[in-house]
């Protein structure tokens, strides 16, 4: 098991490096940089930028240098000092903006993942065991609907319903009085009270696909000869079901984290924009539009790393569950 863990960690290193490069390169793709965007917007307002001030800024951020130098400088800062560079748009170090937002994204994604699992697991089992029953058809239909509805549309509809019929806003993760307050139990409770709306919205699509995964896996397993063996031993049906096919169908289910997590993080980003949640999403889009490169790159990189770590955890969980993988 330890060897397995070490091997997985080794595999992660190139992935992490690749992620940081991709994140940085994407930000470099658009023509021009933050400075040109700034100059352009100032020019639009009829102002002119001082040449020497521009030169100084260029110097400070190494904008004139080749891309790989800029990248290495950036990485050096992160690794040695935890310094992600400065946000041009906010005039603050990126690190200051980053962590609280990232933490909330993490909480939101994790909560969505749990929600997805908790809902999809029993429904998937029910759908497989009672294949072609009315309940199965209903679950399948709802599942399809969930898959077909874009996250942001669901968020819009919910917002509309809340606004129209209950005359209240469902946006945000905190009530106004807790918005800027320091962390306390009250704030946590307030967060939890607000969290379920985005969690349900983000989780819907994932739930739908996981129900299908669970159902298909379990249907496969139910046909396996070992189920007949267990039945021939005289086990009661429900005990048999949970000890063998469900337990074995759980493995591929757990391994779906690998692709569910990226979807959830994606979903969190876009839903946060619609519901204006204080997570990475809204800040990321603004940073992208303003070419606030260090901020955008840091977000893309850390969101990806978050996902990769989540996948690693699911791999470990899978190895713990399945002796065949553990002993490979």
């Amino acid at each position: 098991m330890l060897q397995f863990l070490l091997r997985r960690l080794m595999f992660m290193i190139p992935t992490l490096i690749a992620i940081s490069i991709v994140a940085f390169v994407i930000i470099q793709l658009p023509p021009g940089d933050f400075l040109t965007t700034m100059v352009a917007s100032m020019a639009a307002q009829g102002e002119d930028m001082d040449q020497s001030a521009m030169r100084a800024l260029e110097e400070q951020y190494g904008l004139g240098q080749p891309v790989h130098i800029q990248y290495l400088k950036w990485m050096q800062g992160i690794i040695l000092r935890g310094d992600f560079g400065d946000s041009f748009g906010w005039n603050k170090p990126v690190a200051e903006l980053l962590w609280s937002r990232l933490a909330l994204t993490f909480v939101l994604s994790l909560a969505s993942l749990l929600f997805v699992w908790v809902v999809a697991f029993p429904i998937g089992i029910y759908s497989a065991v009672k294949q072609y029953s009315i309940g199965d058809y209903f679950a399948t239909f709802i599942g399809f609907l969930g898959l077909a509805t874009p996250n942001f549309l669901l968020a819009l509809i919910l917002m509309y319903i809340a606004f129209k019929f209950f005359n209240q806003s469902v946006g945000g993760l905190f009530s106004p009085e807790y918005q800027e307050a320091p962390w306390s139990w009250g704030r946590v409770a307030d967060l939890l009270a607000h969290l379920w709306v985005p969690v349900v919205i983000i989780g819907t699509a994932g739930t739908a696909s996981l129900i299908r995964v669970m159902r298909a896996n379990l249907l496969d397993e139910l046909r396996k000869p070992y189920v007949v063996t267990a039945r021939a031993k005289g086990l009661p049906e429900w005990r048999l079901l949970f000890k063998y096919p469900v337990r074995i169908a759980l493995n591929p289910f757990v391994s779906t984290v690998g692709w569910v997590l990226p979807t959830l993080v994606s979903g969190a980003a876009i839903v946060s924009i619609v519901l204006s949640l204080p997570t990475t999403g809204p800040l990321l889009i603004r940073a992208l539009l303003q070419q606030d490169m260090y901020l955008a790159a840091s977000f893309i990189m850390l969101l990806s790393i978050l996902t990769v770590i989540g996948t690693l955890v699911s791999d470990l969980l899978l190895a713990w569950l399945d002796p065949r993988i553990r002993m490979e």
């Binding site: 994407i26 690998g258 994606s266 876009i270 889009i285 539009l289 893309i300 969101l303 990806s304 996948t311």
Partner: peptide, 20 residues
């Protein structure tokens, strides 16, 4: 595997923002 492990929306957003 690498491309799949990156959350798509942020990646798309980054790439789409790169279009002039």
């Amino acid at each position: 595997e690498f491309i799949r492990s990156i959350p798509t929306i942020p990646l798309w957003m980054g790439l789409a923002a790169a279009l002039p």
